[in-house]
Design a protein around this nucleic acid. Structure first.
Lengths: 348, 348
DNA sequence: CTGAAAGCGCTAACAT
DNA sequence: ATGTTAGCGCTTTCAG
């Protein structure tokens, strides 16, 4: 019998999916459950959260009652009471140049947050008013000049970043892919393939990873007695700009090019094609950041899998640990990278 | 003088960004502001939200006091009180095959939510426990078989989708790109370029857009007395599978192929290249969904800009309107598409 | 093993 | 134009 209970929400589907309003239009509360189960609200709360002072009989009764009336806990009330939000903020860089990477990261974050029972709220750089209420923040790829970042760091909650934030002295906990080893592996591979003059087509120093790739490239050149040839552009620059950069490297006689972001690799393919340079045999190339479009390019481009999804998951684990009060023994979690050898290096 | 006020949070940066806990570790409350400004809490609330019953003098004083102690409203308390969350849920499909598209959509949603002062929470399909508390939901691209979708539709909040949800009789409000016109425009263009036998390489009927593209293709073939040649794969299928599909179409003598998702276009490029078929002159091709990698492919692939970012913004506007109680006069908002002609159709 | 009561921070109704 | 009061739904002492 359902008569006598105030709410039977779960079975009621609105006539149109858009015809409901307000906070779930008067949902069942813990009091409704308590009345239906004939116990107190405290008991309901304890039973539902499994705080073991409840007999299994009442626990079952409460759970039944809750299910009957489709009770869903009001998280706002819970948050207010326990002074935690159950929400992790995620800041994504607003550039499409590595979007598969960021998508993968996002799904990694989402997956792991779900398993820790956290929600994920996106943090916009251009939020005029108040920032969202979050227990902690994950910053995926802090672009220098992103005016939203300082505000995030002032949120006074723990922050985990996946790239060091440039121009900020205080460090956040860090989960970071191994760009250094990726760079060296690719350069070695290009050299193995017989390349004499290897150029670098990558992003300007607007992110930490770009700086690290460049530094590693220069060190490798020095260690191997090669002359460095570098063309850098913003990840926000146009395709044409990148193609020009690629042409510049070909002009100075590079017989191989290491690309940073995928956009650089595609630009190099365009430039090479325009000159009828056969990529692979005639022109070696590789790209630090892998992307699906590189796998299906012609020819497929050798790159490195930086494990974005795994990085996302690891960031959440690190952050959740911090939120639980565990002082991380190491606030830097490295994510190993895996070489993905394809035809463009002429060695596969 | 700051002495005498309980909180000066905004100036305090933790020694390490990860050394704070709990709900912003005792933030300033509305009461703190009230005491500092020498007014009541109601006055503070009204002043800060601009509910015009406050003299400009007190308003200024309150704002000053709030700024002094770094007051940030507690949204959980506010939500609890006003029975609204100020949060819109966003459901993204878990496939990388159109990730630029989804990224753009996401940023569109985020931008417009920010301007309406809503937060955006990602809704995971695999959330074990309770779904997040949201005022409304935007579903970007409902893949059939996504087990999270039914639960979302049961949330009893307004839903806006960007694709019709297959297998659900009740309709959500809908913002949708014009795939029909996109399909026809591209087919006409390929025919203009001299193509006689135009194949379709697209996604199986796991989304509404794929169905619509296919239907439109078949109608076009019928209207133009062409024999249809169709190869369909899941967007979750491997690159190799897609390449095989492309090869099949070439095997039956297609001299042009209309591709659905970008992954199909890349597969066709691979297949064409393996046979030394010059795309553009020898083999016409176009892709319904644009992506950066198509613009920088060799040759660049003609496609249609479906305005994902604009769609994202429009979804938010529609949803926010519904949340405000405005019954939408039309629950279907079409987003016009724009042809982007490139070399692959041999007509540019 | 369970209940009663207080209160998290905020806003809406009702005073003044 | 401003203050007082009650209470949103939940968890947490503290009492049984």
């Amino acid at each position: 019998m359902l008569a006598g209970c105030r709410f039977v929400m779960s079975r009621i589907v609105p006539a149109f999916l858009w015809q409901t309003r307000g906070m779930a239009a008067k949902r069942a509360t813990i009091l409704d459950v308590a009345e239906r189960a004939g116990v107190s609200t405290t008991t309901v709360s304890d039973a539902l959260r499994g705080r073991g002072r409840i007999s299994s009989a009442t626990k079952a009764a409460v759970e039944q009652a809750a299910a009957d009336i489709g009770y869903v806990p009001n998280r706002a009330a819970r948050s207010l009471r326990i002074a935690e939000f159950g929400v992790i903020g995620l800041h994504l860089p607003e550039t499409l140049s590595r979007s598969e990477f960021y998508m993968s990261t996002t799904f990694g974050v989402l997956e792991q947050c779900a398993s820790h029972d956290y929600d994920v709220t996106l943090i916009s750089s251009k939020r005029a008013a108040a920032p969202p209420d979050v227990d902690g923040v994950i910053v995926v790829d802090p672009l220098t000049g992103d005016l939203g970042l300082p505000r995030i760091l002032e949120l006074a909650v723990p922050v985990v970043t996946m790239e060091r934030i440039l121009g900020v002295e205080r460090e956040a906990a860090l989960v970071t892919a191994d760009y250094e080893s990726a760079t060296v592996q690719l350069l070695d591979l290009l050299a193995e393939g017989g390349a004499q003059r290897i150029g670098l087509l990558s992003a300007i120093a607007e992110t930490d990873w770009a700086q690290r790739v460049r530094r590693e490239y220069e060190q490798w050149c020095a260690a191997n007695n090669r002359e460095p040839h570098i063309a850098l552009h913003s990840v926000r620059a146009s395709d044409d700009t990148w193609v020009e950069g690629a042409e510049g490297l070909l002009d100075v006689g590079c017989d191989a090019v290491l690309c940073g972001p995928p956009v650089a690799a595609h630009a190099l393919l365009v430039a090479a094609n325009a000159r009828d340079l056969p990529v692979g045999p005639g022109l070696g190339m590789a790209c630090v950041v892998d992307a699906p479009s590189l796998a299906s390019a012609v020819p497929p481009v050798t790159s490195v899998d930086l494990k974005p999804r795994e990085s996302g998951r690891a960031s959440v684990d690190l952050l959740v640990g911090i939120l639980r009060g565990e002082q991380p023994k190491d606030a830097r979690v490295p994510i190993p990278a895996t070489l993905v050898e394809r035809a463009s290096t002429g060695t596969a």
